[in-house]
């Protein structure tokens, strides 16, 4: 299919979109912010008969608190997340991650649903969604299912989403007053860069100084998909997070990851950076916790 011969349709409702996705005769491709889709089109990787432009499906663009959970419409832009009071107060790690994505222009166009669908191992919002126990709602014409984020990715660029499904909603837990999160990213430069390694952390703190009751850590760009650092998570609960403990926990991080070498960094460096970013993140978190 030539790009110039492809059809572009813009459904005005979700039902209309689901109907289009159900079309068995033609190949279809969803187009939300276009920050990944257009690149793939130009590379010749995606050449569908029909582009389904969902950018204007405003029904899928919302952020709301429901029973101690936060529901985020799939077409919510990264800028929406950055600017949301609710996200900043109850899911700080996601707000920070959204702010680290590419450049402002990409944050304005790109959507959280698109970031999940692209399924890049370096996707910046995904580690944050891991530590916030996200559940992803997938809908087709006939079915609605809710998949935990840990089960959604099958490999780089691959998810369990079927071709007739669309990501409609992301449900995350709302952090309590005693919870605190951070996103750390190492890219080749500060802005407009793809993560060499990134990490999201969400901690539940106790009464005692630097006491951590529970914590979640997720790394990006160090495995075929985003991964949780379960060994480090256990260690968080053993001792108060003073600097030497942080250092020890961070030192264990390299055992959690299995990165590859590519044009951006060597596997060895990525391993070391998993430790460095975790150390930097925990240090900054504790500093912020004590200042609160």
């Amino acid at each position: 299919m030539k790009v110039s011969e492809a059809t572009l349709v813009s459904p005005s409702t979700l039902d209309e979109c689901l109907l289009l996705l159900n079309d068995q005769k033609h190949s279809v491709q969803l187009l939300a912010g276009g920050t990944d889709a257009v690149v793939r089109m130009k590379e010749g990787v995606w050449n569908p008969d029909t582009w389904i432009n969902i950018k204007n499906l405003d029904a899928l663009r919302y952020i709301e608190e429901v029973n101690h959970e936060i529901h985020i419409g799939a077409l919510t832009s990264h800028t929406d997340l950055v600017e949301s009071k609710l996200i900043n107060e109850r899911a700080d790690v996601l707000a920070q991650a959204a702010k680290e994505i590419g450049a402002i222009q990409l944050q304005n166009m790109g959507t959280i649903g698109g970031n999940i669908a692209t399924a890049s191992p370096a996707g910046d919002t995904i580690p944050a969604l891991f530590v916030l126990d996200a559940k992803i709602e997938l809908r087709s014409l006939t079915d609605t299912r809710l998949i935990p984020i840990r089960e959604i990715f099958t490999g780089p660029g691959r998810t369990v989403k079927k071709s007739d499904e669309i990501i409609t909603k992301i449900i995350i837990r709302s952090q309590d007053e005693d919870e605190i999160g951070i996103f750390e990213k190492l890219g080749p430069r500060k802005a407009q860069s793809i993560s060499i390694v990134n990490v999201a952390i969400s901690l539940k703190m106790g009464e005692k100084p630097r006491e951590c009751l529970e914590g979640k850590i997720a790394f990006g760009s160090v495995a075929p998909t985003i991964i949780r650092a379960t060994k480090c998570e256990y260690m968080l609960k053993l001792n108060p997070l003073f600097d030497d403990v942080i250092h020890d926990i961070a030192s264990a991080a390299w055992k959690e990851v299995m990165p590859i070498s590519d044009v951006r960094a060597s596997a060895k460096y990525r391993r070391n950076m998993a430790s460095s970013l975790l150390e930097r993140g925990l240090y900054r978190l504790m500093k912020r916790w004590e200042e609160q």
Partner: peptide
């Protein structure tokens, strides 16, 4: 060429 475009050719931005 392993470097294909500006994705991996890193030039300073205003933040650098």
């Amino acid at each position: 060429h392993k470097t294909k475009n500006f994705t991996d050719y890193i030039i300073p931005t205003i933040r650098e």
